[in-house]
Structures are given as C-alpha cells and as structure tokens.
Amino acid sequence: MLRYIALKVGRALFVVWAAFTLTFVLLFVLPANPVDLLFDPAEINTVPPEVREQVAANYGFNKPVSLQYLDRLGHALVGDFGNSVQSGRPVTTAILGVLPSTLVLAAGALVLALLIAFVIALVATATRHTWVRNLVEALPSAAVSVPVFLSGILILQVFSFRLGWFPAFGDDGLASLVLPLITLAIPVAGPIAQLLVRSFGTEFHSGYVTTSWAKGATRGRIIIGDVFRNASLPALTIAGITFGNLIAGSVITETVFARRGIGRMTQNAINTLDVPLVQGIVVLVAVSFALINLIVDLIYPLLDPRLRATLAAPGAPAA
C-alpha cells in the first residue's frame, strides 16, 4: 500500500517538476534574448542598452542557464516565482488572488457535469423504451459538438438579456456563477456521459446482474445496488483529467463572462508577455491538476476491493 502511495505521489511531483522545467526552457532558454520579452515590442528599439543590462542583471539573465534554472527552481520550491513584470506584485500573490474563483468554477462545473452525465447514464440504463434510450444517448455527442464560446453567448442571450434571470457578467455572488458553470459543464459532460452510458450498459448485462435478477431484485434495485458502483469507477479517472481541461477551458468562459480568474489572468499575461507570471500560472495549474489526479488514484483502492487486495497482499493470481 505504501509503495502504491509513494509511486503516485512521486508521479504527481514529476508532473509538476516537468511543467516547471518545460516552461523554463520555453520562456527563458529558447528565446534568443529573454530580456526582449520583458519590454513592449513597439518600444524595444528605443530602450538604452544600460537599461537592458540592468534589467538582465535584475532577472539574473546574465548568469549561466544552469545556474538560472537552479536559482528559479530553488525559489519556486518555496513558492516564489518572482515578480510580475506588469504589476510588479509577486507572482504567487497575484495567482492566489484569483485562483479560488477559478477553482470554484472548475470544481462546480465538474460536479455539474458529473450530475448531468450520471442522469443521462441512469435514464439510458433504466428506461424500458428504446426511443427514450436512443434520444438520451444522442445528447452527449450533441453536448460535445457545441463549442463553449457559442453556447456561452447563446446562454447569455437567453437567460441574461432576454429573461434577465442571471447577471450577464461580473463575479459577485452565486447568481453570477450559474451561467458560467452551465457553459463550462455542458461540453465536458458529453464525454463523461458517453463513457458512463457505455459502462452502465456493459455492467447491466454482466454476470452478477443476472444473479441479482435471479435473487428476485427489481430493475431499480439492480441499477442502484449493483451496477452503479461498478460502472462509476471509470468515471473517476476521466473526472480527474477533465478537471485539467476545465481549468484550461476557463480561459474562454472567463473571457465571455468577464470574470476574474486564472483564465483571464493567463490571457493577459500572454498578451503582455509577462514571463514570470506565465510560468507561475503553468506550474500552479500543474500542481492542482496533479493533486486532483493524486486524490483520484488514492480513492480508487477504497472503492475497488480487488485493487486494494493486490496492493495490500501481493497474492496476484498467476495464470
């Protein structure tokens, strides 16, 4: 068991380290002169050389690359990614200021997506009518094929401008969260629902379900008591991956709904070439992504006794 945990934690740490290293290479090593990135491209030719040198020294660009790397890594380990070029505030503070609102959005959207997906899968499995099943099974692909910027604008049009139920933008209170949540949740609900419909269908026709029928169980009891847990396991893995996509997807949602958050901040940071901020964002997103997947990996053995057994006692049955 300990070995398993150590393995998974190690993998999570590796992902974060790799994200850090990759962004370092992309942002600080590959550009011919990283100092150029720190100035507005329009004014770059008017900057006097002394100032450039001064800036380079400030950021440590005059040191060898390996030293720069170790220096930045060392600081990053204690949560210091330097200062934002634009605002001059520490990167970590800037990110932590907006991270919660993005996390709430992503987590909320994930929960909503899972709810939608489970409802679709349950209805498709439970119904006795073929046409209901066909209809419900068509929903996921429809959800996937509508892009976020389109559905976002559509939802805004209807619920905010026409009906006026929810505010169109801003980030004050729960009401302002509803529309972004729905916009973000619908496309990611699609793949999860497809997976769940399939695994519910497979499990519903498996051997132990026949046993349950023979015990005298009713359809509802079988779906809730037997199928649900077995069929839900695959959704856990995909939920972890989806969470990463949701954070990435927040760029569009936060722009459309004019919300504060990592997405907006990323967009600004890239537009203004705020190199330290971009690196900080990438690494912090990697951290949250790795953390979620670590949690998923650690929950798995709790839900599946077979996995728990192979971890606890290595008595794997041989062929």
Partner: peptide, 14 residues
C-alpha cells in the same frame, strides 16, 4: 433459484 454458468463473473466484485 438460479445457479449461473461462470462463478467468476456471477458475483458482484465490490
């Protein structure tokens, strides 16, 4: 009562 064919798949694994 019903006894199914393959005992390896006929019990709920969890």
């Amino acid at each position: 009562g019903f006894i199914p064919q393959d005992p390896n798949t006929a019990l709920n694994p969890v």
